[in-house]
Design a protein around this nucleic acid. Structure first.
Lengths: 212, 212
DNA sequence: GCTTGATTTAAACGAACGTTTGAATTATTA
DNA sequence: TAATAATTCAAACGTTCGTTTAAATCAAGC
């Protein structure tokens, strides 16, 4: 990182993450952010120029390391496997685990970051969508290749569909885990990372392997 | 329906749906809505009292019939099956089909409604969440029971998790189909209802049946 | 055709928003 | 310590928001 993170800048980013995840983009004002961060209102414009730029900075802080971790895991798996294809379960693990490990660490955004991701996908703000979709599309391409090697009987389009299903299954499960908690009467909760990971991977691997 | 729908009211609801789906909740102003609907600004407060009430009315118009259709389909399947459990594929069909048929009909909201649903889940607006979660939780309970009858080897909590995975797979696939379209280079698209339905059901049924 | 109620209209309200400004303060360097 | 740059601060800017008001227009019943 070329840029040393200023204390004020950091406080603003953390407050933004906290409030946007709780109230959404539009309903979070700069006045609320600066009050929560304990800094002056004008500090946002001084350090980030504009509100949109602040939100982009907030997203980039989390998004970039996440996808880099995913690709690094996949790279290592492919190196380990040599000429053999990486098993489906391991591909899914590389895709899902970094997100869950992020959730487990509140200092890295915790569950809040998932709310933000869900917001980015849902809220069609013109300045967010290209960023998210581009990051997602690039990452997906690599995992699509790995999946086709693991399951050569899947056609190209079929593999795209199923990867989309698998990612949706995972993303919805963790991003909207409150819905599950509610409908299960509190019996299903997102606590242990390994347990959840195993459950989702079992489900998705079976779906991916299913004969067309 | 006890209430005959006024022309102005209807125009406002349609415009709201159109604009909120495109720009999100916070970024859609009453002025933009009334301009799009071709009615006076004050008409919103006259017919719906407040902006929040308008949004709730917009959501209820689509949400209620959707979940009623799902439950009606499940009821019919259970009646047809008699004492035997309803097959997994048919349960999923009853859960997913009404949404896809809604998408196919632009007069009933089309794909717009899915954007709205995704927004409701993501945007933590205090007045929306209880409505969505309550509707979802109630509907889910019925389908959970049907699933446990179809797959008695699944434990209670395991069935909850897997139903959550299956629904997430479907919802993400259709609500954020643009992501798939982008990452597949336009080769995967949400056109034919039956084809998509078959793909998702195949994927989810295999995941649901997978041995724990 | 006048009356009564429902609806539409133009105009204004106060509040909250993102952003800008210029002076005050703090940190840095010589 | 003096000079220079970086940061913070209180205050205000113009705009837009949701909502309200009171008059104007429309519809229907007797």
């Amino acid at each position: 990182m070329a840029e040393q993170l200023h204390a004020t800048k950091l406080a603003i980013l953390n407050a933004t993450e906290r409030l946007v995840a709780r109230h959404g983009f539009g309903a979070t004002s700069l006045r609320a952010i600066t009050a929560d961060a304990g800094v002056n209102l004008a500090a946002v414009n001084y350090h980030f120029a504009t509100k949109d730029a602040l939100i982009l900075a907030m997203l980039n802080r989390r998004m970039k390391p996440l996808n880099e971790t995913r690709l690094a895991l996949l790279n290592r798996l492919e190196a380990e496997a040599g000429d053999a294809p990486v098993p489906v379960e391991k591909i899914l693990d590389a895709l899902f685990r970094p997100v869950l490990e992020l959730i487990a660490r509140p200092s890295k955004g915790g569950r809040r970051f998932l709310r933000l991701l869900a917001l980015c996908l849902a809220e069609p703000g013109a300045y967010l969508k290209p960023l998210v979709q581009k990051e997602f599309a690039e990452k997906t391409r690599r995992f699509h290749r790995a999946l086709r090697r693991a399951l050569p009987e899947l056609s190209d389009v079929e593999a795209h569909w199923r990867l989309h299903f698998a990612y949706g299954s995972f993303f919805h499960a963790v991003a909207h885990s409150q819905v599950l908690e509610l409908s299960s009467g509190g019996r299903c909760r997102l606590t242990n990372v390994e347990t959840v990971l195993k459950r989702i991977i079992t489900f998705c691997a079976a779906g991916l392997r299913s004969p067309a």
